[in-house]
Amino acid sequence: MGKLEKASVGFLILLGLLPILLELLGEGIPKGYILRILSSALMLSSLALAQNVLLGYTGYPAFGSVAFFGIGGYTSAILSKNFEVPLWFSISLGGVMASVVAFLIAPVLMRLKSHYFAIATLALQLALGEMVANLEFTGGTDGINLPIYRGFMEDYIFYFLFLSLAVFSFGVNLYVDRSVFGYALKAIREDEVAAESTGVNTVLFKSYSFSIMAFITGLCGGIYAFWITYIDPVSMFDPLLSVKLFVALLLGGVGTVAGPLWGAFGLELVSEIVWSEFTQIHGVVLGLLIVLAVLFLPRGLAGVRR
């Protein structure tokens, strides 16, 4: 493992131990605030790491990957609300649903490449948002209210869910980076015709890659839904979330295992500061950051050392 990857593992372990510290310190610190920021950063990390499997290793930019965030969130919310499926199970089914949908549409969608593919996935995201807003069982534009979670570790449950998801996503990226399975994806990224001619069934492996991305993104949507306790089409199919996860990914370094994690934490930290210091113009400042990152860190934070 590279230095940056080891540091990431250490960082994730520290995050796992953090609640003990928070409990020991007791009432004096803003526990809720810290957990909220870290949970957001972990969520963004998972989304960026998921996208990294597709864009970084397979070369397909799914700019509308948030479509699967919505599918996961809505699937788990509806299951839990209407059929009283337990939290864990409904979140898992949300992920499964997202990946099944992705696997089915991938052979068609992934005939497109680069910008065209990015736009097609964005269209999917926006179209799904409109559909959900106009359907009865999804609650239309009113959205769905979910009960506030009470029970086992109620203060920390979502923090740990997001942390587990980030660890899982990190592991998936590590696996793709080092495995024979990953070779197939990288071959597709480098040259699809050559990949086919050397025996890689590109349609199949593109579909795998797309549905891995969708699975993680869908799980993320499910956890988010129960965390926020209210979902509507605007928040679950939000194009700004797509932008944010791409900025995190670009900032961190596309196609590296550790990059997306650091990119997400860096962006979350910066945008938190920008939010509180420059409330009026935070969009401008974030935009500037993107431009600077593209100009001076074309390979992202993880690419600086190289």
């Binding site: 070779y183 025996g199 890689v200």
Partner: peptide
Amino acid sequence: ENVLIPLHYGS
């Protein structure tokens, strides 16, 4: 790696 890919997938 260029040679390993066909070895893994087509050979």
